[in-house]
Amino acid sequence: MQNIIDYIVEELGDHYSPGEVKTYVSLILGKVCGISSLEILTRKINKLSNTQHLVVDDIVGRLKNDEPIQYILGTTEFYGLPFLVTPAVLIPRPETEELVEWIITDKQKPNPSILDVGTGSGCIAVTLAKKIAGARVSAWDISSRALDVAEENAANNKVFVRFSEHDLFSSFVEKEQFDVIVSNPPYVLESEKREMEPNVLCYEPARALFVPDSRPLLFYERLADIALALLFPQGGIYMEINRMKGSDVMALFSEKGFIDVCLRKDLSGNDRMVFARKEG
């Protein structure tokens, strides 16, 4: 029987780069067979059962149809923590890890209260609850299916986050105020769809990705209002942004009266994050 590694490499070689195929080999065999990276490297692999072969075949076929490996396996890693992911939520990105890192490394007041707007998988909220001592974290999302995933992720990572189903364009349900607001809102323009890979365009939730070209700052306009209403004086809002809209987002928050507005690049050198502070 054909070696399972050779089989995966042969089947995926025309669809993905050698580096991606190597990663998929490790992920697939780790998931299906519990095989370590060292065993894969040395090819010390016992014969797979018929059931295991069928599972590998299914995963390979789905990858050839551009389905993201994270959805196929149902899991991913974010900031060193395990997260469940389903097609109801966006797959967490490294750029969002950088946003979380910014918040964690900024000097926060003791036991900060934090609101994550548009939490999706809960990766931001759960990570902040895990990594900032004494943090009291709340999170909103419009999708009940996304909140089911987020709640499970909080439980699996042994943290408490107060999740609420909430449309950020509706009236505020929160009565408390927050030291920190964070959001990774939809910011991809509809016109940018043509540049996107099929594994994103065909599988990830469009509602969490796209904004109309006519109103590219739609969510940031609303986030500014939310921050003005719900942040304590001197509280701050951290946002992930479209790399082409950094100066526009900064101008919007400055015009709204925020101070200390600043832009930060991601590790790829793209404008990716904006911070603004409420006066007080």
Rank of each mutant, 00 (worst) to 15 (best):
K107M: 06
A229E: 15
N50D: 15
V182F: 03
L54S: 14
H166L: 13
V56D: 05
S37D: 13
E255S: 15
L209T: 01
D271T: 01
R222V: 04
G280I: 01
V261E: 10
E255M: 11
L201N: 02
R215A: 12
A208E: 06
S49N: 09
E97Y: 01
S164K: 14
K107P: 00
V25G: 07
A133V: 03
S143C: 04
C123Q: 06
Y220K: 08
I259S: 12
E11Y: 01
F169Y: 12
D148Q: 14
D225V: 10
G30F: 07
N46D: 14
L147Y: 11
L230Y: 05
F232W: 14
C262E: 15
L48N: 01
D225H: 04
E20F: 03
L231N: 09
I103Y: 02
G13P: 11
S144G: 11
I132T: 03
E10W: 07
P198K: 10
A88Y: 09
E98K: 07
E39K: 14
I4S: 07
V261M: 07
S183A: 10
A229P: 00
E67A: 06
Q177D: 09
Q2W: 06
K31A: 13
V117W: 01
Q234L: 13
V211Y: 02
N156S: 15
L29T: 10
K175L: 11
L231P: 09
N157Y: 12
L189H: 01
E255I: 03
D58T: 13
H53C: 14
P186L: 03
D116L: 09
P233I: 11
R264G: 00
V159P: 09
K265Y: 12
L168N: 00
D116C: 08
T119V: 10
Q108K: 14
G280W: 02
I69T: 08
P112W: 01
D58E: 15
S26A: 13
Y238W: 15
A88G: 00
I8D: 02
V137Q: 04
L223R: 08
Q70L: 05
V161A: 05
L128S: 08
N199K: 08
K193N: 04
E204V: 02
N153S: 06
D57Q: 12
P110T: 11
G34Q: 10
E11A: 15
S121Y: 10
A227L: 06
L147Q: 10
T105S: 14
G118C: 08
S138F: 13
T75G: 00
Q70M: 06
L48M: 13
I226G: 04
A135F: 06
E101M: 07
Y187I: 03
P92D: 07
I45R: 06
S113R: 15
L90W: 06
V200T: 03
L231Y: 09
I4L: 09
P18N: 04
I103F: 04
P87F: 05
F78V: 12
